[in-house]
Design a protein around this nucleic acid. Structure first.
Lengths: 228, 228
DNA sequence: TATTGTAAGTGTCGTATATACACTACTCCT
DNA sequence: AGGAGTAGTGTATATACGACACTTACAATA
């Protein structure tokens, strides 16, 4: 038992994990095994250990639940209404994560836990206030994707420009003009053409490109905006 | 005494309170009366009560420490490195606040606590990791002021365009062209001229304007960007 | 081997937006 | 009357953005 002079809330981390699955934007959800909300779908997460930072806690929980090590992770916001958990006062630090479903396989159904990918547009009923967290995460993603190169976190190392465009269209929920899009994305100077082309497609093969992370890290230092 | 089956961190809220004092951007700091960091300057804040939301906690602490009710308040980020407080594990939810030092007087030196306004550029040594929180807050302010009308939170109801421009220049740390600035700010349609002019100035009297909050709230709903 | 289906790839022009830049107007003070 | 000090105003150029339609390449099928 742990004793304190004043009451302390519990602190959890919960992550909204985005991934691109079949050209659809999806989120990873876990089915709860315990009360409260037993059987309901919920964001992956858990309690912060006393010796780990918040980022580390988020990483650990995701590692445990998805098996993925390399993912994009960023703190979103902290949710702390007094009654958001019926058991005790629980404050949750929410994260946005992006996993690359091309390069890594996610153990969606792990040992003990049932997990699954759900379309962002119509998720199932979620436990706690997780639907609010999802809304905030989607909002952040849509805002940030326009001036930071987050799209490449979703895509394989080598991708076609059509893939990039479709992803932007999916996230932003609006169509983009092909020529203008290609002008912009190539105008950044960070999306570099390879001498490789698609194979085994029943139409003209698309060229592969890669994202020059080094150039971005240098230029993002001062002033440079990605901006699509 | 309060008992828990698992260890719980303490949770505080700390606010970076910005204000415009003599055309300088300043932050409000409190001198600590207790260990640790006794005597050092720190961000105003305190423990979250079990029956209040995080926003309410931030508001309450600021009300207690500054006496100001009407202020702009927005959650910034949560800081939770395990060793950021030497006593016990303390996770702090940081807020950015803006107080209007024209319309409200802040009880900078209150009963028990010594408080003061310090230039953002060279603050004193701060307790805990508060210098990091300050850096993050300044970053947020500089970013957000360019596409949201935060400036008017600093200024009196009726202001001159020169005041607005000087404030932008102060926050962004760069000079702006007067004519282009005035074109843009008037182009928003939300900064409305009054038929009042400065009095008792030893030069041409400047016209007063006000910010049309209603128009902003309507237009900010969809798509409109303030953008300076 | 000719045809068809499908997605890839490419350029221009008009419009809107951003930037650079310098003088006159007003008020008070000496 | 003139000087000090800040308010206020317009134009021209460069850049960015959005609209828009056809040709190319590949493979499957007739």
């Amino acid at each position: 038992m742990y004793q304190y002079e004043y009451p302390h809330p519990a602190v959890t981390v919960d992550s909204v994990v985005f991934g691109l699955d079949n050209e659809e934007l999806k989120i990873l959800l876990i089915r709860r095994k315990l009360e409260p909300f037993k059987g309901a779908w919920a964001l992956p997460g858990g309690f912060v250990q006393m010796d780990e930072s918040l980022d580390d806690a988020a990483k650990r929980e995701l590692m445990e639940e998805t098996g993925v090590e390399k993912l994009y992770l960023e703190q979103l916001a902290t949710f702390g209404k007094p009654d958001r958990d019926p058991r005790e006062r629980v404050i949750t630090v929410a994260y946005v994560a992006i996993v690359n479903l091309f390069d890594h396989t996610v153990k969606a159904d792990s040992d003990a836990e049932e997990a699954g990918w759900f379309p962002v547009e119509d998720p199932p009923e979620l436990a706690f206030d997780h639907i609010k967290i999802l809304a905030a995460a989607l909002n952040r993603l849509q805002g940030k994707i326009r001036y930071q190169p987050l799209v490449f976190e979703f895509l394989p190392e080598k991708f076609t420009l059509s893939q990039v465009q479709k992803l932007y269209e999916t996230v932003l929920c609006r169509p983009l003009d092909k020529r203008n899009f290609r002008k912009k994305i190539q105008g950044t100077g960070m999306v570099i053409p390879l001498d490789e082309y698609e194979m085994d497609v029943s139409h003209r093969a698309a060229r592969f490109y890669y994202f020059d992370r080094k150039a971005w890290e240098e230029k993002s230092g001062e002033g440079f905006h990605f901006s699509i």
